[in-house]
């Protein structure tokens, strides 16, 4: 069954057609990747799915419900959680607190509960603290829990964003170029974590332009170029797809290849 179903999704910025009639179905439980050269429209595509950008036309359905015109927080509340290409950490909060914010959707209680602190609320707060520690251990940031989040090196900031997204118990995790700016060793670590998340039952939709990473871990890959979907298939199919090679290497080189 398709958890995410995108039909004819189009985004026009003035004269630029950033996304042109994209169709995509992400099956439940899969590790799906969208790749494409810089400027292919991957992030635009992502922003529309997560509600940060309104589409020009087309429809998006998550878990059988139409989410095309929903707000970001409504989509997030349905279990579709995204990360950002430019990390959006909560400055002024510790590493652990960042993950605790991520527990927002998995918890409840507002001003009244915070003031009166009934026993369920105190228990929930304790669980939130504990869960944050567990998730930090999961991504390997356990030792940095009390550090100011801003002080983390870049690679660890990306991991923190992943841990934070996991805290809300997503059903579909959207990762926007999680390996951007990471060195080889960090990328390997990240690939390992993404696979582990997927194996534990979370559907993952990944945007990357690092083809190496994607072909290693993804079950299925869609390729965007100039706002169009030019191919979709298993990693092995994509690796030999002539249009994909052309998009990445240019037409002439592809002819020689």
């Amino acid at each position: 069954m398709a958890l995410l179903k995108v039909k004819g999704l189009t985004k026009r910025f003035g004269g630029l057609l950033a996304n042109n009639e994209i169709d995509l179905e992400v099956p439940q439980g899969s590790l799906f990747a969208v790749i494409g050269p810089n400027g292919a429209g991957k992030t635009t595509f992502f922003s529309m799915i997560s509600g940060f950008l309104n589409s020009t036309s087309g429809s998006i359905a998550f878990d059988g419900r139409d989410t095309t015109r929903m707000r970001q927080d409504q989509i997030a509340a349905m279990g579709l959680i995204r990360t950002f290409q430019l990390v959006q950490l909560f400055k002024g909060m510790s590493v652990a607190e960042n993950v605790e914010v991520g527990c927002h959707l998995a918890t409840r209680g507002g001003v009244a509960a915070a003031l009166l602190r009934p026993s369920w609320f105190r228990r929930q707060e304790a669980e939130v603290h504990e869960r944050a520690r567990e998730l930090l251990d999961f991504v390997g940031l356990g030792a940095q829990a009390d550090l100011d989040a801003e002080l983390l090196p870049y690679g660890q900031q990306r991991l923190l964003e992943v841990a934070r997204a996991l805290a809300s118990r997503p059903r579909l995790l959207l990762l926007d170029e999680p390996a951007a700016g990471l060195n080889t060793q960090e990328t390997d670590g990240l690939a390992h974590i993404i696979e582990k998340i997927n194996r534990q039952g979370t559907t993952v939709l990944l945007i990357e332009h690092d083809v190496g990473l994607v072909t290693r871990i993804a079950h299925r890959i869609a390729v965007l170029d100039f706002g169009r979907k030019i191919a979709e298939g298993t990693p092995d199919e994509i690796k030999v797809h002539p249009e994909v090679i052309a998009a990445y290497l240019g037409v002439e080189e592809a002819a020689y290849a």
Binding site: S50, F52, R71, Q72, D73, A76, A77, I81, R82, T83, F84, Q88, L89, F90, K91, G92, M93, E97, E100, V101, G102, C103, H104, L105, T107, R108, G109, G110, V111, A113, A114, L115, R117, F121, Q124, E125, V128, R164, A165, S168
Partner: peptide
């Protein structure tokens, strides 16, 4: 009151908004 509200789900939400509105919205904070 300020201390109680700050160290709670509600207070963390407020401080997340100050840190990054996009980040907070992506985690379901209204």
């Amino acid at each position: 009151i300020s201390q109680r509200l700050r160290d709670s789900r509600f207070g963390r939400g407020l401080r997340a908004i100050s840190g990054s509105e996009n980040g907070a919205a992506a985690l379901g904070i209204r």
